[in-house]
Protein backbone atom coordinates (compact mmCIF):
# COMPACT_ATOMS: atom_id res chain seq x y z
CA UNK A 1 0.00 0.00 0.00
CA UNK A 2 1.50 3.30 -1.05
CA UNK A 3 1.26 4.86 2.36
CA UNK A 4 4.04 7.28 1.62
CA UNK A 5 2.18 9.20 -1.00
CA UNK A 6 -1.02 9.29 0.89
CA UNK A 7 -0.15 10.43 4.31
CA UNK A 8 -0.54 14.18 3.97
CA UNK A 9 -3.82 13.81 2.25
CA UNK A 10 -5.08 11.66 5.01
CA UNK A 11 -4.08 14.24 7.52
CA UNK A 12 -4.96 17.55 6.09
CA UNK A 13 -8.52 17.04 6.89
CA UNK A 14 -7.75 14.61 9.55
CA UNK A 15 -10.15 14.14 12.31
CA UNK A 16 -7.22 12.24 13.69
CA UNK A 17 -8.40 8.70 13.29
CA UNK A 18 -6.60 6.23 15.47
CA UNK A 19 -3.01 5.86 14.44
CA UNK A 20 -3.08 8.94 12.25
CA UNK A 21 -0.06 11.08 11.73
CA UNK A 22 -0.16 14.62 12.95
CA UNK A 23 0.56 17.53 10.69
CA UNK A 24 2.76 20.21 12.19
CA UNK A 25 4.51 23.43 11.31
CA UNK A 26 7.33 24.37 13.66
CA UNK A 27 8.75 27.91 13.69
CA UNK A 28 12.34 28.56 14.75
CA UNK A 29 10.90 31.34 16.91
CA UNK A 30 7.47 32.88 17.41
CA UNK A 31 8.82 36.13 18.87
CA UNK A 32 11.32 38.19 16.91
CA UNK A 33 13.03 41.50 17.69
CA UNK A 34 14.86 43.93 15.46
CA UNK A 35 14.19 46.16 12.47
CA UNK A 36 13.35 43.05 10.49
CA UNK A 37 13.85 39.37 11.11
CA UNK A 38 13.76 35.88 9.70
CA UNK A 39 11.91 32.83 10.91
CA UNK A 40 12.74 29.39 9.59
CA UNK A 41 10.03 26.73 9.57
CA UNK A 42 9.91 22.96 9.47
CA UNK A 43 6.73 21.28 8.30
CA UNK A 44 5.87 17.61 8.32
CA UNK A 45 3.46 14.87 9.29
CA UNK A 46 4.44 12.35 11.92
CA UNK A 47 3.05 10.42 14.84
CA UNK A 48 4.98 12.42 17.43
CA UNK A 49 4.56 16.11 16.80
CA UNK A 50 7.71 18.05 15.87
CA UNK A 51 9.62 14.82 15.33
CA UNK A 52 10.51 14.63 11.64
CA UNK A 53 10.47 10.91 11.00
CA UNK A 54 7.72 10.24 8.50
CA UNK A 55 6.75 12.56 5.65
CA UNK A 56 7.29 16.19 4.68
CA UNK A 57 4.47 18.63 4.18
CA UNK A 58 4.81 20.01 0.70
CA UNK A 59 6.16 23.56 0.50
CA UNK A 60 3.77 24.40 -2.37
CA UNK A 61 0.84 23.93 -0.02
CA UNK A 62 2.05 26.51 2.46
CA UNK A 63 1.15 30.17 2.30
CA UNK A 64 2.33 33.11 4.36
CA UNK A 65 0.54 36.34 5.17
CA UNK A 66 1.74 39.74 6.39
CA UNK A 67 0.12 41.43 9.43
CA UNK A 68 -2.32 43.21 7.10
CA UNK A 69 -3.39 39.92 5.53
CA UNK A 70 -1.73 40.25 2.15
CA UNK A 71 0.18 37.26 0.91
CA UNK A 72 3.88 37.15 1.76
CA UNK A 73 6.65 35.32 -0.03
CA UNK A 74 7.99 32.06 1.29
CA UNK A 75 11.71 31.74 0.66
CA UNK A 76 14.29 28.98 0.49
CA UNK A 77 11.73 26.21 0.38
CA UNK A 78 13.12 22.70 0.34
CA UNK A 79 11.23 19.43 0.59
CA UNK A 80 13.37 16.88 2.36
CA UNK A 81 12.83 13.24 3.01
CA UNK A 82 11.17 13.72 6.38
CA UNK A 83 10.29 17.37 6.51
CA UNK A 84 10.15 20.46 4.39
CA UNK A 85 11.81 23.67 5.43
CA UNK A 86 11.30 27.27 4.37
CA UNK A 87 11.98 30.81 5.55
CA UNK A 88 9.85 33.87 6.08
CA UNK A 89 11.38 37.34 6.04
CA UNK A 90 9.51 39.56 8.49
CA UNK A 91 9.93 42.96 6.92
CA UNK A 92 7.51 44.93 9.08
CA UNK A 93 6.33 44.75 12.69
CA UNK A 94 3.25 42.80 13.62
CA UNK A 95 1.89 39.28 13.63
CA UNK A 96 2.51 37.21 10.51
CA UNK A 97 0.70 34.00 9.65
CA UNK A 98 1.90 30.84 7.94
CA UNK A 99 -0.81 28.39 6.97
CA UNK A 100 -1.94 25.36 5.04
CA UNK A 101 -5.63 25.69 4.33
CA UNK A 102 -8.10 23.56 2.43
CA UNK A 103 -11.82 23.81 1.92
CA UNK A 104 -14.31 22.07 -0.28
CA UNK A 105 -16.70 19.19 -0.64
CA UNK A 106 -15.91 15.55 -0.31
CA UNK A 107 -17.93 12.48 -0.97
CA UNK A 108 -19.56 10.66 -3.82
CA UNK A 109 -22.62 10.38 -6.06
CA UNK A 110 -23.97 8.27 -8.89
CA UNK A 111 -24.99 9.48 -12.29
CA UNK A 112 -26.14 7.42 -15.25
CA UNK A 113 -25.09 4.23 -13.53
CA UNK A 114 -21.54 5.46 -12.90
CA UNK A 115 -19.80 6.22 -9.62
CA UNK A 116 -18.27 9.66 -9.08
CA UNK A 117 -16.11 10.71 -6.18
CA UNK A 118 -15.96 14.34 -5.19
CA UNK A 119 -12.90 16.03 -3.76
CA UNK A 120 -9.66 14.37 -3.04
CA UNK A 121 -6.40 14.57 -4.83
CA UNK A 122 -6.15 13.60 -8.46
CA UNK A 123 -3.20 11.28 -9.01
CA UNK A 124 0.04 13.17 -9.29
CA UNK A 125 -1.39 16.38 -7.88
CA UNK A 126 -0.34 18.06 -4.69
CA UNK A 127 -1.55 16.60 -1.44
CA UNK A 128 -4.98 17.51 -0.29
CA UNK A 129 -7.64 16.13 1.88
CA UNK A 130 -9.13 12.75 2.30
CA UNK A 131 -12.60 12.19 0.99
CA UNK A 132 -15.00 11.67 3.81
CA UNK A 133 -17.07 8.94 2.26
CA UNK A 134 -15.03 7.00 -0.20
CA UNK A 135 -16.99 4.21 -1.78
CA UNK A 136 -15.27 0.98 -0.95
CA UNK A 137 -14.68 -1.44 -3.78
CA UNK A 138 -11.71 -3.10 -5.38
CA UNK A 139 -9.99 -1.28 -8.21
CA UNK A 140 -7.02 -0.33 -6.10
CA UNK A 141 -5.02 2.42 -7.67
CA UNK A 142 -7.79 3.40 -10.01
CA UNK A 143 -6.79 6.69 -11.53
CA UNK A 144 -8.91 9.75 -12.07
CA UNK A 145 -8.18 12.57 -14.50
CA UNK A 146 -4.86 14.29 -13.96
CA UNK A 147 -4.30 17.89 -12.91
CA UNK A 148 -6.49 18.75 -9.99
CA UNK A 149 -7.84 22.18 -9.24
CA UNK A 150 -8.19 23.53 -5.69
CA UNK A 151 -6.00 22.54 -2.82
CA UNK A 152 -8.80 20.35 -1.58
CA UNK A 153 -7.67 17.26 -3.30
CA UNK A 154 -6.53 14.00 -1.80
CA UNK A 155 -4.90 11.19 -3.64
CA UNK A 156 -6.48 8.25 -5.24
CA UNK A 157 -6.63 5.74 -2.49
CA UNK A 158 -6.65 2.03 -2.82
CA UNK A 159 -10.16 0.74 -2.66
CA UNK A 160 -11.57 3.92 -4.07
CA UNK A 161 -13.58 3.84 -7.22
CA UNK A 162 -15.35 6.27 -9.46
CA UNK A 163 -14.50 9.18 -11.63
CA UNK A 164 -12.78 12.06 -9.92
CA UNK A 165 -14.63 15.37 -9.65
CA UNK A 166 -12.95 18.36 -7.97
CA UNK A 167 -14.70 19.38 -4.77
CA UNK A 168 -13.68 23.03 -4.88
CA UNK A 169 -15.86 26.14 -4.94
CA UNK A 170 -16.84 25.54 -8.58
CA UNK A 171 -18.43 22.20 -7.84
CA UNK A 172 -22.01 21.86 -9.00
CA UNK A 173 -23.95 18.68 -8.46
CA UNK A 174 -25.19 17.52 -11.85
CA UNK A 175 -28.92 17.18 -12.36
CA UNK A 176 -30.11 13.62 -11.96
CA UNK A 177 -27.39 12.61 -9.52
CA UNK A 178 -28.40 9.93 -7.04
CA UNK A 179 -26.87 8.39 -3.92
CA UNK A 180 -25.43 11.79 -3.05
CA UNK A 181 -23.11 11.69 -0.05
CA UNK A 182 -21.33 15.00 0.33
CA UNK A 183 -19.59 16.54 3.31
CA UNK A 184 -18.36 20.10 3.64
CA UNK A 185 -14.70 19.97 4.67
CA UNK A 186 -12.26 22.60 5.79
CA UNK A 187 -8.90 22.37 7.46
CA UNK A 188 -6.54 25.02 8.72
CA UNK A 189 -3.04 24.52 10.07
CA UNK A 190 -1.53 27.86 10.99
CA UNK A 191 1.31 29.38 12.95
CA UNK A 192 1.67 32.97 14.13
CA UNK A 193 5.02 34.71 14.42
CA UNK A 194 5.45 38.27 15.63
CA UNK A 195 8.07 40.88 14.88
CA UNK A 196 8.02 43.66 17.49
CA UNK A 197 4.57 44.63 18.69
CA UNK A 198 1.84 42.05 18.09
CA UNK A 199 -1.17 42.87 15.94
CA UNK A 200 -4.71 41.58 16.20
CA UNK A 201 -5.63 38.18 14.80
CA UNK A 202 -9.01 38.52 13.15
CA UNK A 203 -11.42 35.67 12.46
CA UNK A 204 -12.44 34.92 8.88
CA UNK A 205 -15.80 33.36 9.75
CA UNK A 206 -14.90 30.25 7.78
CA UNK A 207 -14.43 26.71 8.98
CA UNK A 208 -13.06 26.04 12.46
CA UNK A 209 -10.74 28.74 13.71
CA UNK A 210 -9.07 29.99 16.84
CA UNK A 211 -9.30 33.59 17.98
CA UNK A 212 -6.73 34.24 20.67
CA UNK A 213 -7.85 35.90 23.88
CA UNK A 214 -4.22 35.59 24.95
CA UNK A 215 -2.21 36.64 21.94
CA UNK A 216 0.27 33.94 20.83
CA UNK A 217 3.05 36.48 21.47
CA UNK A 218 1.90 36.83 25.09
CA UNK A 219 1.84 33.19 26.16
CA UNK A 220 3.69 32.68 29.44
CA UNK A 221 4.02 29.50 31.47
CA UNK A 222 2.68 31.07 34.69
CA UNK A 223 -0.61 32.25 33.18
CA UNK A 224 -3.19 30.12 31.39
CA UNK A 225 -3.56 30.67 27.66
CA UNK A 226 -7.09 31.65 26.67
CA UNK A 227 -8.56 31.02 23.26
CA UNK A 228 -11.94 31.24 21.57
CA UNK A 229 -12.97 28.79 18.89
CA UNK A 230 -15.44 29.60 16.17
CA UNK A 231 -17.29 27.40 13.69
CA UNK A 232 -18.21 29.41 10.63
CA UNK A 233 -17.94 32.53 12.77
CA UNK A 234 -20.12 31.23 15.63
CA UNK A 235 -18.85 30.08 19.06
CA UNK A 236 -17.80 26.44 19.06
CA UNK A 237 -19.26 25.30 22.37
CA UNK A 238 -18.19 22.10 24.10
CA UNK A 239 -15.36 21.61 21.63
CA UNK A 240 -12.54 19.33 22.67
CA UNK A 241 -9.15 20.97 22.26
CA UNK A 242 -6.04 18.80 22.49
CA UNK A 243 -2.52 20.04 23.12
CA UNK A 244 0.67 18.04 22.95
CA UNK A 245 3.96 19.44 24.23
CA UNK A 246 7.15 19.17 22.20
CA UNK A 247 9.80 16.64 23.25
CA UNK A 248 7.76 13.42 23.34
CA UNK A 249 10.89 11.44 22.56
CA UNK A 250 12.45 12.48 25.84
CA UNK A 251 9.60 11.47 28.10
CA UNK A 252 7.42 8.42 28.52
CA UNK A 253 3.95 9.81 28.31
CA UNK A 254 2.25 11.72 25.54
CA UNK A 255 1.67 14.61 27.96
CA UNK A 256 -1.55 15.47 26.20
CA UNK A 257 -3.69 18.25 27.62
CA UNK A 258 -7.40 18.07 26.84
CA UNK A 259 -9.63 21.06 27.46
CA UNK A 260 -13.22 21.83 26.50
CA UNK A 261 -14.65 25.12 25.35
CA UNK A 262 -17.54 26.73 27.24
CA UNK A 263 -20.77 28.03 25.73
CA UNK A 264 -18.94 31.05 24.37
CA UNK A 265 -16.43 28.80 22.63
CA UNK A 266 -13.73 29.83 25.09
CA UNK A 267 -11.12 27.62 26.64
CA UNK A 268 -8.43 28.24 29.23
CA UNK A 269 -5.27 26.15 29.06
CA UNK A 270 -2.90 25.96 32.05
CA UNK A 271 0.67 25.29 30.92
CA UNK A 272 2.66 22.57 32.68
CA UNK A 273 5.82 24.31 31.51
CA UNK A 274 7.23 26.71 28.95
CA UNK A 275 7.82 25.25 25.51
CA UNK A 276 6.31 24.51 22.15
CA UNK A 277 2.78 23.07 22.01
CA UNK A 278 0.81 21.52 19.17
CA UNK A 279 -2.89 22.35 19.38
CA UNK A 280 -5.60 20.44 17.54
CA UNK A 281 -9.39 20.59 17.47
CA UNK A 282 -11.91 18.87 15.23
CA UNK A 283 -15.52 19.80 14.70
CA UNK A 284 -18.13 17.67 13.01
CA UNK A 285 -21.89 17.82 12.71
CA UNK A 286 -24.74 16.94 10.41
CA UNK A 287 -25.51 20.37 9.05
CA UNK A 288 -24.04 22.47 6.29
CA UNK A 289 -24.73 25.76 4.60
CA UNK A 290 -23.59 24.30 1.32
CA UNK A 291 -26.23 22.87 -1.00
CA UNK A 292 -26.40 19.08 -1.12
CA UNK A 293 -23.92 18.64 1.71
CA UNK A 294 -25.30 16.55 4.54
CA UNK A 295 -22.69 17.47 7.12
CA UNK A 296 -19.51 19.32 7.81
CA UNK A 297 -16.14 18.39 9.17
CA UNK A 298 -13.55 20.95 10.18
CA UNK A 299 -10.05 20.58 11.50
CA UNK A 300 -7.79 23.13 13.17
CA UNK A 301 -4.11 22.95 14.10
CA UNK A 302 -1.71 25.53 15.44
CA UNK A 303 1.68 25.62 17.12
CA UNK A 304 2.08 27.76 20.23
CA UNK A 305 5.27 28.94 21.85
CA UNK A 306 4.91 29.43 25.61
CA UNK A 307 7.70 31.42 27.24
CA UNK A 308 9.22 31.33 30.69
CA UNK A 309 7.74 34.11 32.86
Amino acid sequence: MPVKRLFVAALLLAAAPAGAHNLWIKPSAATVSGEDGWVSFDAAASTDVFVADHQPLRVEQIKAFTPDGSEARIENGITGRYRSTFDLHLTKPGTWRVAVENAGLQGSYKLGGEDYRVGGRPPGGPGGMRPAGAPGAAAANARGPAGGPTGAAPPQRPGMTGKFVPGGPDFVLPAGATDVKLTQSASRNEVFVTLGEPTEIKPTGKGLEMVPLTHPADLVADAPGRFRFLVEGKPAANLEVRLIPDGKRYRNDQGEIVAKTNAAGEVSVPWPSAGLYWLNATYQDGTSSIANASGRRFNYVTTLEVMTP
Binding site: S33, G37, G196, A217, T308, P309
Partner: peptide, 21 residues
Protein backbone atom coordinates in the same frame (compact mmCIF):
# COMPACT_ATOMS: atom_id res chain seq x y z
CA UNK B 1 23.88 47.51 11.57
CA UNK B 2 22.42 47.45 15.07
CA UNK B 3 22.20 43.67 14.82
CA UNK B 4 22.18 43.53 18.61
CA UNK B 5 18.46 44.22 18.44
CA UNK B 6 17.96 40.67 17.24
CA UNK B 7 18.62 39.41 20.75
CA UNK B 8 16.52 41.94 22.66
CA UNK B 9 13.68 39.43 22.70
CA UNK B 10 15.82 37.23 24.94
CA UNK B 11 15.07 39.72 27.70
CA UNK B 12 11.75 37.88 27.55
CA UNK B 13 9.80 39.43 30.38
CA UNK B 14 10.83 42.95 29.43
CA UNK B 15 10.19 42.31 25.76
CA UNK B 16 6.64 41.22 26.47
CA UNK B 17 5.96 43.96 29.00
CA UNK B 18 7.01 46.85 26.87
CA UNK B 19 10.31 46.29 25.07
CA UNK B 20 8.57 45.32 21.88
CA UNK B 21 6.75 48.65 21.72
Amino acid sequence: EDAGQKWLRDLRAWWRKGGRT
